[in-house]
Design a protein around this nucleic acid. Structure first.
Lengths: 251, 251
DNA sequence: TCAAGACTGTAAAGCAGCCCACAAACAGAA
DNA sequence: TTCTGTTTGTGGGCTGCTTTACAGTCTTGA
């Protein structure tokens, strides 16, 4: 219970709220846990709340008519998702599934709507959040149109490096373990193709695979091959145990 | 000059502003016209303003490394674009080009930012606008991943019917003329493929091409083939001269 | 009204990537 | 450990799409 309050206070969206407002927020929202593989919402669910992930990892995805998953986003602790609910009355448009045991706080959308009316910085924060993600989707769209599977995959690896990468002596190491199937479902390809392209890249010396973790040997050169600037990647620190850098939208 | 004021008042984003606020908005913004094919902004431009189109049609697009255009959006009179500038300090990320002689109002982003701070409904309106378009991009992403060119094209036609279609005795008629090249640049395909797929669809009786205008004979059946519900399309009226239905984000 | 340029139609060749099939390696639970 | 289910590796056949090339048609502006 107390934990819930702590996470809400910690969330950049709400950092400028008064004690009173935070408490009302806390009273209206509820915390809930999900096991690995459990569905958090379905496309047929009414979108009545905004979710804040406090523990675990969540994936958002569509399912195509022939049963293939199209992965839309990975959500990390501290991140908000399902936020389009605040203005879009209808139903959800994707699946949300816990990839590991996860806990999240469910905030009714009316609460957020009220806050947006009264607190400009909440409204601006929500706008930034939605806009930031729109940019992401647009960039992704661009990286898919007209590009070969090889290029798409390289694009994806660089994006993952931006979010999950740490710099080590060998190169940039991705602190997330995704199966080839999952990678394929992000770039709209097949498991087999991802396997061979990763194999190619490895034999070209562009990356290394160590116990299911990818290491990009020369991210700058990799980025150059697809005409993109390589991301900033922090040095690996044994003291820093976060596995991902959730983007911050607060300021 | 007077016209500028009229358009700002008409824009749903600003409809609840006071006379005073509208006038300040008008004083700070400037109107400008562009000829057909003229560039409105480039990816290298600083994004210092939000644009409101008052006349003409604008296309937003990326250019891939091998020179292909990837069309992102078409903007119709009354619509706002370049709106991600309000929170995203850097540069534009796409090209904006006038597809026909066009006029637009340029509103400095600081003005919008100030309004968002002081007027909750402006902030909410911007959020809805950005969110609405994010939904669009996400849906488009979904319609591209794992789909054949034929399916992508059908998807696109249905989307165009939603925005530009009118119901006639023969079927749904699209009140916009796009070249095969342009259609291809939306779905990430080639001109030739679009030509043959359109030919196929025509010989299957699914659509008709009359003087460069497409008529979808049975949009419901067409929508069904790709597992989608067909959009609402208004009856053609000789008194209604708008060619497109710009989405409304005001309320 | 004519000419130049843009757009559409068609066809052949080549290949990237999908589908199918199976084997090997690995991970997690008992 | 051993067993079971998941993930990875590899190859062959097939097809949808791109590429290239060219001809015919439509638009538009002088």
């Amino acid at each position: 219970m107390d934990e819930k309050l702590w996470f809400l206070k910690e969330c950049p969206l709400f950092e400028r709220l008064t004690e009173d407002q935070i408490e009302r927020l806390e009273a209206a929202s509820q915390s809930r846990s999900f096991g690995k593989g459990e569905m958090i919402y379905l496309p047929s669910d009414a979108s009545e709340s905004v979710l804040l992930l406090t523990k675990g990892r969540v994936k958002l995805f569509h399912v195509t008519s022939d049963g293939k998953q199209a992965l839309l986003a990975l959500i990390e602790p501290g991140e908000v998702f399902g936020e389009l609910a605040v203005f879009d009355g209808g139903q959800r448009e994707e699946f949300a599934e816990a990839m590991m045991p996860s806990t999240l706080i469910r905030i009714p959308k009316v609460i957020i709507q009220d806050l947006m009316e009264s607190e400009a910085n909440v409204a601006i924060g929500i706008t930034k959040l939605i806009g930031f993600r729109r940019r992401r989707v647009e960039r992704r769209l661009k990286s898919l149109l007209f590009r070969s599977n090889r290029e798409r995959l390289i694009h994806l690896l660089i994006e993952l490096a931006d979010q999950y990468g740490v710099r080590t002596p060998d190169g940039v190491r991705l602190k997330i373990k995704l199966s080839h199937q999952e990678l394929a479902s992000i770039i709209g390809s097949t498991r087999e193709t991802v396997t061979v392209v990763l194999g190619d890249l490895q034999s070209e010396g562009k990356l290394k695979i160590e116990r299911r973790h990818l290491i990009l040997n020369d991210i700058d050169r990799l980025a150059a091959t697809i005409g993109v600037t390589s991301p900033e990647v922090p040095v690996d620190s044994p003291f820093l145990h976060r596995t991902a850098r959730p983007a911050r939208y607060g300021t």
